[in-house]
Design a binder for these strands. Structure first.
Lengths: 213, 213
DNA sequence: AGTTTGAGTGTACGTGTGTACTCTCAAAAG
DNA sequence: CTTTTGAGAGTACACACGTACACTCAAACT
């Protein structure tokens, strides 16, 4: 039952991260005090400094952590069981798949999504910048992904980025709504429908779009 | 140069509202202290209570105020100088008009937009609820507006709501980006392009969409 | 075995916080 | 002219805040 020194340290570090995520469900990071976090973890305030330089520093770590679970979601959304027969079916499949990934992953990583959504705009400047940067990376990934879809040949790189931006901001809105809804089944289903329809509108609408105007 | 009693009271009330909007550009409402606001205004902390019950109460007033400037923007976006000749031109005109309204209004009411964007997710629960409610009203207005556009006949009410939701969340994202950019011309132009293209994609894509699947 | 290391403790400080209370003093009401 | 009213000032309190400093004591290193 003895614990090595690094193990123990890692355990309290995790406890601090978890406690902060928990406290951030009801208030933004900027409204959080070092003492509040320490009390929640069960350590003395000064012990906090053994792990993080400041609340802001902690926030940056949480951003990285949160985005790695977002990446898991996106990876799931990209995987198909069976390749769809035609274009229209493909778009439907993409939409359905993405939304399914959204509603199954979000509850599991609720606190991460909520954290990102909150701190994206309300966080301290460096935290906001970190979130913005990560979202940009995701946008780019999504853009190259869409580029491989049939009918996307006519699209310019710029337009693909713009389309990806639209999809990311829509999905972020839905993720936040899901996270806030908790486990209320009716809300989950409503968001699910809205998200799926929006993706279809955009993707199918995209077929009629031509970058050359 | 004498000032009536109600005039004077209204003046400090405004000063409190303005000071709070100013302070909220760098931090969320929840991280704000009553004393900070009072100091900024130039009154003693206890005098605050003559105007608002709490910071949260003040927040709710700011939400109302902010949304009335958002409504101004939307009204501007709906007004046309000359009716466009055909459907495609109409969609382009709608998109151009909306985006023009966005980039001209946002700088004027920057602090209001920033406040909404921040507090929508990071604010105290009652403030978040107030923002959510106002956005829902705007969505409904937009939906009935789109319903009058040619080609929208085939759309169900539900789908119109879903489309409006997509547009509102996209425009909110852009408004926030504009507000954060301040007066940096290159950013403004980039956001402008992105917003216009997204609106066109969605609106023109919408022509190809059929609610009946 | 003896020594070093470092996570976590305990105490102490100056400062900021919300709020209760009494006081002022000019505009409004009589 | 006198009285009432109410925005704002001033003082006071108990409490939470970040952080500096010296301490403990078991695991890890030599």
């Amino acid at each position: 039952m003895t614990e090595t020194r690094v193990e123990r340290k890692e355990r309290t570090r995790r406890a601090i991260l978890d406690a902060t995520l928990g406290l951030c469900e009801t208030q933004p990071l900027a409204a959080l005090s070092l003492r509040q976090v320490a009390k929640e973890v069960g350590i003395v305030p000064t012990a906090f400094y053994r792990h993080f330089e400041s609340i802001e520093d902690l926030g940056l770590v949480l951003v990285d952590e949160s985005f790695s679970s977002l990446r898991d979601l996106l990876r799931a959304a990209r995987t198909f069981d069976t390749p769809p027969p035609n274009d229209r079916a493909l778009f439907h499949a993409v939409a359905d798949n993405s939304v399914k990934a959204l509603v199954t992953h979000v509850p599991r990583a609720q606190r991460h999504f909520r954290f990102i959504a909150r701190e994206r705009l309300a966080g301290p400047a460096p935290v906001r910048e970190a979130v913005r940067h990560q979202l940009e990376l995701i946008e780019r990934e999504l853009a190259t992904d869409i580029a491989r879809v049939p009918g996307a040949g006519r699209w310019t790189t710029e337009d693909l980025r713009i389309l990806a931006n639209l999809l990311v901001s829509a999905m972020l809105t839905h993720a936040e709504e899901l996270a806030l809804a908790g486990n209320r089944d009716d809300v989950v289903r409503r968001v699910e429908t809205t998200a799926r329809r929006q993706l279809r509108m955009v993707l199918i609408g995209a077929l009629g779009w031509d970058s050359s105007r």
